Computed example of a mutant assay.
Amino acid sequence: MRVTATKGLTAVLALLLGGYVFVVGPHLAGEQERGRTAAIDAALPPTTGIRPTPADGGGGPAPTFPARGEVFVGIMTDEGVHDLTEAARFTRRTGHRPQVYEFSLDWASDRFDARLIDNVARRGMMPLVAWEPWDHREEPEEEQLRGEQPRYRLSRIIDGAFDAYVRSWAEGIASLGYPVGIRLAHEMNGYWYPWCEQANGNRPGEYVRAWRHVHRIFERAGATNAVWVWSPNVHYENATPFEGLYPGDAYVDWVGLSGYYGTTGRENYRSFDAIFSASERRLRRITAKPLAITELGATDAAGRKAEWIAGMFRALPRHPRIIGVIWYQAFRVIDWRVTTSPESVTAFASGVSAPRYRTPWSPDAEPRRRL
């Protein structure tokens, strides 16, 4: 068969492409992955171990986290537990290693994986799972429809439809030994998730019953290292009142709040106190549990993010009940990241450098369960 110039060129190109796909491409991908891992290790160096030492092993009582009078400063990222690149970037830019790392996992697609959670803990950050009973892959663009997933109605959780899945997590968390935060079904006082009582055909009282049901499964599995974080959105007009959604002090370790400056429809400047103080007072009427701000962020649309951050750090000492804040270090419709401008980075680095925000976390630490 006669080989033409065109056929010969095609063969050469095919050979080169094959070489790239099967040899060069994987090599470059491997180099990129090793570079990414090295950058994460440099900013968030792993510690020597993650299995806690028994308190009676001669080392004295376990430290309390956070220490009395101190406040942790953590972050939450879009990549979550699967990629710590943003956490490393945040640490390099601000000079602050987050003591708590929050990440979202849903009941439809995320199985318990000790390796991923260990990877957070061994870097000196307490893992905090925003554990979501829904399928986030089916989230519609229309906010009013986000809460409609009949498979994840609260009644199905109560009736045991997800018991095997919950039990696998309970047993997995128990096997870790160190504290892991469980922020179960957050922002339940709104309408935008399937576990909200205002959505998905749910009925009043079912949220508390579902929470207690999941909590009991963890108790039976011996997962006493789970730190239960009940975390509504800051109260707003037409929100479901906190009182009817609180599971009770026997089922909660920390209470939390989500709140942002600059959400759509509320772009006017509002200080930290303006966003959180009223809701904090409401919470104080139903529980004395420690409070962690489990999601917060600020827009820079009006160029006031640095001002807001500086104001937050000035305000926090006036809120002795707050034991920690978790910044939403991500771009979701709005760029909430601290690192959007040098001014914001400077304001954050300056504020977080105060000694009260340097409380360390270790696997041996006992989470503060009372003020």
Score class of each variant (00 low, 15 high):
R167I: 14
R167A: 15
A170C: 12
G172F: 02
A174T: 11
A174L: 10
A174W: 06
S175W: 10
L176G: 13
Y178K: 03
P179F: 11
G181W: 05
I182H: 01
R183V: 08
L184E: 07
A185D: 05
E187I: 05
M188I: 12
M188S: 03
M188Y: 05
M188D: 03
G190N: 09
Y191A: 07
Y193V: 07
E197S: 09
A199L: 02
N200K: 10
N200C: 10
G201C: 08
G201Y: 08
E206L: 00
Y207F: 15
V208W: 06
V208L: 04
W211D: 00
R212W: 09
H213W: 04
V214Q: 00
E219K: 09
E219A: 09
R220H: 11
A221S: 13
T224I: 06
T224V: 04
A226I: 10
W228M: 01
V229D: 07
V229K: 02
N233K: 08
H235E: 11
H235L: 08
H235N: 12
E237G: 07
A239Q: 06
E243K: 09
P247E: 02
G248C: 09
G248Y: 06
G256T: 14
L257I: 14
S258F: 04
G262E: 12
T263N: 08
T263M: 11
G265K: 15
R266T: 14
Y269D: 02
R270G: 02
S271F: 06
S277T: 09
A278D: 15
A278K: 15
A278M: 09
E280V: 14
E280R: 10
R281C: 05
R282Q: 13
R282G: 02
R282C: 03
L283F: 00
R284H: 15
R284D: 15
I286F: 07
T287N: 05
P290H: 10
A292P: 07
A292F: 07
T294M: 12
L296H: 12
G297A: 04
G297C: 06
T299M: 01
A301E: 11
A302F: 14
A302E: 14
A302W: 09
G303V: 08
R304M: 02
K305S: 05
A306S: 10
W308M: 06
I309F: 01
A310T: 05
G311Y: 03
